[in-house]
């Protein structure tokens, strides 16, 4: 029965693959961090060019990359840089914006408003376990981070390793699987610290968490652009081979003024600046 349905589907599928001339369907898949940008891009772009349809999925950076490699997607969204294996499978990446990583604490942590990179590294390595070691009250630090494959975590730990070459993260860190889940966890857990996409932290405007300064620098878009706030990473799009046709048009539009405005509105850092 299933096979029968499959045959029917195959014969019908031809219409769907998309002829490029008049109407184009661009299938986009990948990172949930980049997806908020693409949802707005889709809305605006489809309104501008009625012949283009953007089909948007968000199942994660790597499934997006895999989809682009095997041809089920035209464009992959990644919240990290391409891996070696993905480059050798023929993916080309286009950086469309940057994202800072904000260090957030539960709003009950009032005596600490700034941490150095070394302090952050020591906290996440499990060497500092009490807030009083960094000038706060006598309370155990509830350490929260992202799951091991997260793009945010990858970038975060890479930066900590740059600050302290001996850094390895402690196994007793509590792991959450998305920016919002982490934000909620830190907001609901006393004495908690975590890190989250700056875009999310700024647009969420949650009163349950406070954003810390890092090395005396405020976590703001301006400081990320200026390069003084060092916790940042790139947001990418990727195609198999060089982009062309309707897909290239779309990428160029995102890299243009209107597209970059959307990147900025979503709390991320535009590439042009």
């Amino acid at each position: 029965m299933i096979a029968g349905v499959g045959v029917y589907a195959l014969t019908n599928h031809g219409n769907n693959d998309g002829s490029t001339d008049e109407s184009a369907e661009i299938v986009v898949n990948g990172s949930t961090t980049v997806a908020p940008i693409m949802t707005i891009v889709k809305e605006k772009y489809e309104a501008l060019y009625s012949s283009v349809t953007i089909q948007l999925n968000a199942t994660g950076s790597s499934t997006g990359a895999a989809a682009a490699i095997n041809g089920t997607a035209d464009l992959a969204m990644l919240s990290r840089d391409l891996k070696e294996s993905e480059i050798s499978d023929g993916l080309h990446s286009y950086t469309i914006g940057k994202d800072g990583i904000a260090i957030i604490v539960n709003s009950g942590v009032t005596d600490v408003s700034n941490l150095t990179m070394q302090q952050i590294a020591d906290i996440y390595a499990g060497k500092i376990t009490n807030w009083n070691e960094v000038g706060g009250a006598d309370a155990h630090i509830n350490l929260i981070g992202r799951e091991s494959n997260s793009g945010t975590r990858g970038a975060f730990e890479e930066l900590l390793t740059k600050a302290d070459s001996t850094f390895t993260v402690t196994s007793s860190m509590i792991e959450m699987n998305s920016n919002n889940a982490l934000l909620t966890a830190v907001g609901n857990t006393a004495n908690a610290i975590g890190y989250v996409s700056l875009g999310i932290a700024l647009t969420a405007g949650s009163s349950a968490v406070a954003i810390l300064d890092v090395g005396g620098v405020h976590a703001t878009v301006a400081n990320v652009v200026a390069g003084t706030y060092t916790l940042q990473r790139s947001l990418n799009l990727a195609t198999k081979g060089e982009a062309n046709g309707a897909v290239l048009d779309l990428i160029n539009w995102i890299l243009g003024t209107e597209g970059q405005k959307i990147v900025e509105d979503e709390g991320y850092i535009p590439i042009s600046s």
Partner: peptide
């Protein structure tokens, strides 16, 4: 104590895992 389950590991790591890799 904090613990991690098999299913949580699968669900958390699968979306960002390079398809076909050892992980």
């Amino acid at each position: 104590a904090t613990v991690r389950t098999l299913t949580a590991t699968i669900a958390m790591e699968m979306p960002e895992c390079v398809v076909g890799s050892t992980g």
